[in-house]
């Protein structure tokens, strides 16, 4: 294969990564933006989404598309419910104190991971894609399902953006993000907004996981890389900025594929982590954020 087609393939793979990453990171970013909570357990919600997708498709059987569609609806709902319970029982009682909530979400991470190991087991399990159509390009064939991930993610991101900017719910969320005390004074049920945002954040991660699980596999430790990458995206894109998050996700997703062609995965991770830490040290508002915060 020539260089051009090779690059195209790498770019397509990168876009699939970007698509999933953008959804996951958006969840993390929303939770941080509105609630000022750094959710270290975010990757575990992602993992739960994938594990539940396996459980649901296995339970339903029949045509793969049937089980997959069911998983796409049910898994995020279950994950959202779990997140909501965690928010009510733990985060709310901590009064959303930033440092205490980090410690608490670390606790959640360990609990969810260990429970997944106990009930799901240490195996990596596949989920069959809903369809197996291959798109034939002049140089190579490409999985139609992978392209549909990009489309689905773009759709969901647009929908989220519309909800945030064009609806009353979005307005309430932005008001709470801007100044929760004033929002409270204007009759916004801030506690309910926080609960909803935390659940929504977890659901976005779960949806991303259901989308990716047919081409990766479900495993109880699979939440670690998405967590790290989401952190990277949210920090580069500017904490709490939707546009920055999407731009950074595409950037990271594309470069991830290209970097790992030249470096070992470990070295790529080392460089990426170090760079992002430096961004946080020297440009805490992110590369795309403004200096006002």
């Amino acid at each position: 294969m020539h260089f051009g087609p090779h690059l195209l393939l790498a770019a397509l793979e990168g876009l699939v990564t970007s698509a999933v990453l953008a959804l996951t990171a958006l969840g993390l970013s929303l939770v941080f933006g509105v609630m000022r909570v750094v959710n270290v357990a975010h990757g575990e919600f992602f993992m739960l989404g994938a594990v539940l997708a396996w459980a649901i498709t296995t339970a339903i059987g029949g045509h793969p598309a049937l089980g997959f569609l069911a998983a796409l609806v049910i898994a995020p709902l279950i994950v959202g419910a779990i997140a909501l319970i965690a928010e009510r029982l733990v985060l709310r009682r901590l009064n959303y104190n930033p440092e205490a909530t980090i410690v608490a979400t670390i606790g959640m991470l360990y609990i969810i991971q260990q429970l997944a190991l106990t009930f799901y087991g240490p195996e990596a399990r596949p989920v069959e894609p809903p369809f197996n159509y291959r798109i034939l390009l002049p140089w190579f064939g490409y999985s139609g399902y992978k392209l549909s991930i990009i489309a689905a993610s773009a759709l969901l991101l647009t929908a989220t953006w519309l909800v945030l900017t064009r609806t009353r719910i979005g307005l309430i969320m932005r008001a709470t993000q801007y100044d929760s005390e004033t929002a409270q004074a204007f009759g916004i049920a801030v506690g309910r907004v926080y609960g909803g945002v935390f659940a929504l954040g977890a659901m976005l991660a779960a949806i991303a996981a259901v989308l990716i699980v047919p081409i990766s596999q479900a495993h109880y430790l699979m939440g670690q890389d998405p967590l790290l990458l989401s952190f990277i995206v949210v920090i580069i894109g500017g904490l709490g900025s939707l546009r920055g998050t999407v731009v950074a996700a595409v950037l990271i997703g594309l470069s991830d594929g290209i970097i790992s062609m030249f470096f070992s995965p470990t070295l790529a991770k080392i460089i990426a982590t170090l760079l992002v830490a430096m961004v946080l040290v020297f440009r805490p508002q992110g590369l795309f954020g403004t200096a006002s915060r």
Partner: peptide
């Protein structure tokens, strides 16, 4: 460890 962390901060 997880349960202990949460109970402690709570």
């Amino acid at each position: 460890v997880g349960v202990a962390l949460i109970l402690l901060v709570l």
